[in-house]
């Protein structure tokens, strides 16, 4: 009896859930994707024990590249501790028994939903994106046969029609996420719904980027140090979002901020979307304008304890 069969008999999963033949098939798609940066490689996406939209593409890619020594970080909209991240991290802890972490620099594989960590990634890391709609031309041209032909012939005029419309209607390019990029001067690619704030990080990134779309059955990749250019016009160059205030908790500037509504009277705060980055900065003593005073936090904790009693 083979090892795998024994595992199944004992009611255990194969390492990282997928069977070895499936991983092999996905690895082939990944290799092809790396060989043709930005090209969408079709693959036989499997049913996963979670609904489409939860990152089944990213999960399959991660499952195929994980080794026993890997350390996994799971991000959901920049955060490590929201539902999607917690569930998927738990999934891999259970099925692969590997180490997981919140810390960006410690992870070897980072699966992310719609953010790239603020901390610069290294050559030793792989960034796996969950992609809902891999085709950047989809909302302009609904026919798959036609979009494939457009990619093959590098017929990308339509993409600029969309940007033209943005400027004509709003005075500036109003696309703020899933902002189309051209990879290695060849393929136009959708960098998944990450805010365009993260687009400059994709360019010449040291880490390998893998994109998996489970429902749409496509995998694409950007190898390390690949040129990635955000599409724009000469007189309306690509720009990222700017925030006029620093993070309310850690005081960080030039990072992507989330808006948090505080009450129903217009109170709100802006905090780092990358929760791990924010925590590390606060641990290092950085304070934003709305951060709790350490002493006050102490008092608050005592109050709570008393209430509990």
């Amino acid at each position: 009896m083979s090892d795998t069969a024994q595992l199944y008999d004992q009611g255990e999963y194969n390492f990282a859930y997928l069977d070895e033949q499936t991983k092999r098939m996905i690895r082939r798609a990944i290799l092809k994707g790396i060989a043709i940066p930005g090209y969408q490689v079709p693959f036989a996406s499997r049913e996963m024990p979670m609904p489409y939209g939860w990152g089944t593409g990213g999960v399959q890619v991660t499952a195929s590249i994980l080794g026993k020594d890997d350390c996994l970080k799971m991000i959901d909209q920049g955060s490590d501790d929201t539902t999607n991240a917690v569930s998927l991290r738990g999934f891999f802890e259970k099925t692969a028994g590997i180490r997981t972490t919140f810390e960006t620099s410690e992870a070897t594989v980072i699966q992310t939903r719609h953010r790239i960590p603020e901390k610069t990634l290294t050559e030793d890391q792989v960034l796996v994106f969950q992609v809902p709609i891999p085709e950047p031309l989809r909302f302009l041209e609904p026919r798959e046969t036609e979009t494939r032909k457009m990619h093959a012939l590098e017929d990308y005029g339509l993409m600029h029609v969309k940007l033209y419309e943005d400027i004509a209607k709003n005075g500036h390019i109003a696309t703020t996420y899933a902002y189309p990029v051209k990879v290695n001067d060849r393929y136009v690619m959708d960098p998944s719904p990450t805010p365009k704030f993260d687009n400059p990080k994709i360019d010449e990134m040291a880490a390998l980027q893998l994109y998996g779309a489970g429902r749409e059955k496509r995998i694409y990749a950007i190898p390390p140090y690949t040129k990635v250019k955000s599409l724009d016009f000469e007189d309306y160059p690509f720009e990222v979002q700017k925030f006029d205030k620093p993070c309310a908790l850690c005081g960080a500037e030039n990072v992507y901020l989330d808006e948090v509504i505080l009450d129903d009277r217009g109170g709100r705060m802006f905090v780092c979307s990358d929760s791990n980055y924010c925590e590390e900065r606060r641990a290092a003593g950085h304070r934003g304008p709305m951060a709790a005073d350490p002493a006050a936090a102490q008092i608050g904790a005592t109050d709570l304890q008393e209430t509990a009693r």
Partner: peptide, 25 residues
């Protein structure tokens, strides 16, 4: 293209052949 403006309709061919200056288009 019924869903994009008249200007974009006229400009589409220009953009398809590589014109990348919004003002000129």
């Amino acid at each position: 293209r019924m869903t994009v403006s008249a200007g974009a309709n006229v400009g589409e061919r220009l953009m398809a052949v590589g014109e990348r200056h919004y003002g000129n288009i």
